[in-house]
Design a protein around this nucleic acid. Structure first.
Lengths: 216, 216
DNA sequence: CTGGATCCCTCACGATACTG
DNA sequence: CAGTATCGTGAGGGATCCAG
């Protein structure tokens, strides 16, 4: 008789159950990246450079078993394996974004070893979007952070965030970690431009609109 | 120079930061219980019987350091030590409730070792409350689950959940794990009463109202 | 090259005993 | 009551290897 998996909490409770499913180390970060798009094993590794492959492998199996992730083999000739969230897994979208907003309040300066990934930025932009500031507007932002390029398309107040350059962009914002200071209200758009920590190509007023639309 | 704490994820990201703060094992369960009320060390142990005391001790220190929990010594003559959430910690309320709703969808039958605690039930009732089903209503439910007795007071559509018996209660609901089956829609109130897995003292129609107000 | 499996090592966690 | 001390175990970290 199986006494009790040591990793269980021994309570009949929703929170407890949730943590047994996605509370293990790395699990919610895998889900964060899969919320952006389905991915191959190697793509997940790139988005989480410090995860050991055996842990990634184990987590994917556990999440698949729990019905959070689905492993899918693409049809020939590709034959590639992709991992994607089930509908149940997609339900974590709001929770992961809320956690991101909560944690962002304690993001100080990036450490020397800290990296920024494309998927984490896409989720960050989605989670800090304030629809009430964008009602009825149409704008296309492109954001360059070193190698990372993403775009935010606001169509009639609706947000779409994606990888790569924006088509017909209204403004290109180029920044480093200062983008967080700007979005956290630690500096104003004017200050950011003045000190050169944020550069724009296009109407600088759009940077103000940006900061009023995306903030913690 | 401190290279990097092994427990860090090495990313400059809100989700990552959040998980570094509350992602360790047991942390969110401690917070779940503190969301209900401030507690002493021993109270926390009772609500989390399987937590080793050194882990509880360590987590409390980490959470205090992160500004999530505050350790407070009550004034004389009590002199007791209580742990309570800071305002930053309170912000986890919605997240913990959302996790509870998400995990509750995968709560099967309770295992032989599974226990139910008062605080977890209080959070479960808060998180499954559907205000739109209670607008303008005034009801006082008492819920007995073995030793555990809690009450839900709906005052003009507003919910307050607390420990112990309800004053001027309209109905006492007595149940076991079947309360979850009822709230998950796996059985109807009529079936629950018919098979005896739920018993009521008071108007049985109030049990239907209950199931329409509190559900996953 | 993708998608892992395997190995070894370390440290966080778990169980229990003990103390101011 | 409110924790600390001790020690064993297993999950996680890191490197390497392997099959398709």
């Amino acid at each position: 008789m199986q006494i009790m998996s040591a990793r269980r909490y021994g309570q009949f409770c929703g929170v407890t159950r949730a943590l047994e499913i996605v509370g293990e180390r790395w699990a919610l970060l895998i889900i964060r990246d899969l919320l952006v798009s389905p991915k191959r094993f190697t793509d997940l590794r790139q988005g989480l450079p410090r995860i050991p492959t055996n842990i990634l492998s184990t987590r994917l199996k556990e999440l698949e078993e729990a019905g959070v992730v689905r492993r899918r083999v693409l049809p020939r000739p590709s034959g590639a394996v992709v991992y994607e969230l089930t509908e149940y897994g997609q339900q974590l979208d709001e929770i992961v974004m809320a956690l991101g907003r909560w944690g962002a309040q304690r993001l100080g300066e990036p450490g020397p070893e800290d990296i920024v990934t494309e998927d984490s930025m896409i989720m960050a932009m989605r989670s800090t979007f304030h629809p009430e500031a964008a009602v009825g507007r149409n704008v296309r932002y492109q954001l360059n952070l070193g190698q990372i390029v993403i775009h935010m398309d606001i169509d009639n107040g609706d947000l779409q965030v994606g990888s790569g350059e924006a088509e017909d962009r209204d403004i290109v914002i180029e920044a480093g970690p200062a983008i967080k200071a700007l979005m956290a209200g630690e500096i104003t758009p004017d200050e950011a431009l003045a000190e050169g920590s944020v550069k724009v190509t296009g109407d600088p007023d759009l940077l103000k609109q940006f900061a009023e639309t995306f903030y913690i």
